[in-house]
Amino acid sequence: MDKRKGYFLIIPAIIIMFIFTFYPLMDGIRVSFTDKSMLRTEYSYIGLDNYKQMLGDPIFWLSLRHSIILTGVVVILQLIFGLILAWTMKQEIPGMPIFKSLIMVSWVIPVAATVTIFKFMAQSDVGFINIILKSIGLKSLVRYWFGDPLTAFPLIILLHLWRNVPFYGIAFLAAMQTIPASFYEVAEINGANAFQSFWYITLPGIRNMIIVMVTIHVLWTFNNFDFIYLATGGGPINSTDVLPVYVYRQSWDRYAAGYGASIGTVMLLILSIYLIIYLLIQERGEYKR
């Protein structure tokens, strides 16, 4: 077939992606080597000074730790609960179709709305969580859940789960449905219990889907800005500071756009390393097959 036609077809996508992502990204990286401030138009190149400053910045290290913990915990929990949910939805019991259609709703609504809902739920006086706690006699636990350094971070994790677990569930469910029923029959004849058939048949059967979901969500969670920015802004104190929020704070609260960009560049580096490892693993997997 005509090759030129092929290029012609893909070129609009490439142009848009180049103008609105690659170019801004390169520019962002360039700015990370300058002392650009939001307050002045002139700036100069200062080499690696921003990166040196970062090494001695305790809040950067704290945010980095939070980002990694958040991404790790969130993705692992999503995976576990997603599998449980998928297993449940696979059971053919009455009412299941309705349940399936309801469950994805939390994934569809805007993040800004999700945050608002949870802020309301977490209020100390009128929040649903606290009303329930009071009514079952746990008055000592009542608090503004986003305003307590101990509970704010776990609540952010909960927000991520709330949004994405149903999506995992539905995706895993569909993957499970492609596994031929005969596999399970054979396993049963050979005396495998439920756990064994899950471990030896279901998991390998949905292996590809697990890899895809985990990869997408690691990137998404690590880069996610609006959940934390809208919910806590990184507070109370620094208990929910993560890298994307810290980048924003440096650029806007301290007007240090250059320094903010350098932290953003480090985020990119971390994700690149992750992606390279992922590709290597995948290549090895394909080779084995």
């Binding site: 350094p149 507070g235 109370p236 104190i237 609260d253 301290r254 007007y255």
Partner: peptide, 17 residues
């Protein structure tokens, strides 16, 4: 004042928490 006020309130938060 932006960054100054930000620092002021961070200090306040350090104390009240």
């Amino acid at each position: 004042w932006g960054p100054v006020s930000e620092a002021n309130l961070r200090a306040v938060n350090y104390v009240i928490y």
